[in-house]
Design a protein around this nucleic acid. Structure first.
Lengths: 113, 113
DNA sequence: CTCTTATACATAAGAAAATTATGTATCTTT
DNA sequence: AAAGATACATAATTTTCTTATGTATAAGAG
């Protein structure tokens, strides 16, 4: 199963922050591959979505960056800033809570009282 | 906690279909109140989001409608069509699967191997 | 009896967050 | 030498909401 595209909406930022909280630093392409691997290809982050998101996180001061040359090619590493760590906890908690709520909604039989 | 608005994106249609699968028929306002009640005010479906979604479901043949007068006011009931019932199962399964995947992503410690 | 709040529908303008398409360039494998 | 993988980036477009606005009836409070 590959999820219909609309499901990912709203969760991308949280996924990226969570990965960065578990890994000291990661670069964009690495993030796409890690998510693909961890979700058994169910979630494929597109580059057109990822890079603007990373830039937004940087603009918001939630991540810091370091560019390094690997051979002749630039690789841009992202790491959480202190405020990014705080934000990550908030976002992860919120998403976990939301998923509990959604699970409840999907499981119950809402026979009108 | 009230969820940040972007989280609901992509899940609204599935929520509506699920509610209709548990109740023979519902009208728009009733759906907003039911979701509010079931989620303890955590999810507030706005009318600007709901009515276009209901119309889209109707255009896609997933729901049928019946308009009734309650006093002088029209109330429009929505009910799943046969194809809507099939679609609901698919969407609910997909969302449940997605939530499992997300839960996994958020819980693990993804130390790079 | 009048005002406010709730019920009940609807649409339009705008914003947010993705997809899809495109571009550049290097590295690795066949 | 070509193809596919790695690695970044941005622009045009689409999807899906929010916010604002509009109309109208019903119910409850003061």
């Amino acid at each position: 199963m590959i999820y219909s595209t609309e499901l990912l909406k709203g969760t991308l930022k949280t996924i990226v922050l969570k990965l960065l909280s578990d890994n000291k630093r990661m670069y964009g392409y690495e993030i796409t591959q890690k998510v693909k691997e961890l979700t058994l290809d169910k979630i494929q982050i597109t580059e057109g979505a990822l890079y603007p998101t990373l830039h937004a996180l940087e603009d918001d001061g939630l991540v810091t960056t370091e560019s390094e040359f690997i051979g002749k090619r630039v690789r841009k590493y992202y790491a959480l800033s202190p405020s990014g760590k705080t934000k990550t906890k908030e976002k992860v908690n919120e998403l976990a809570d939301f998923m509990s709520t959604m699970k409840f909604l999907l499981d119950i039989k809402t026979k009108t009282a």
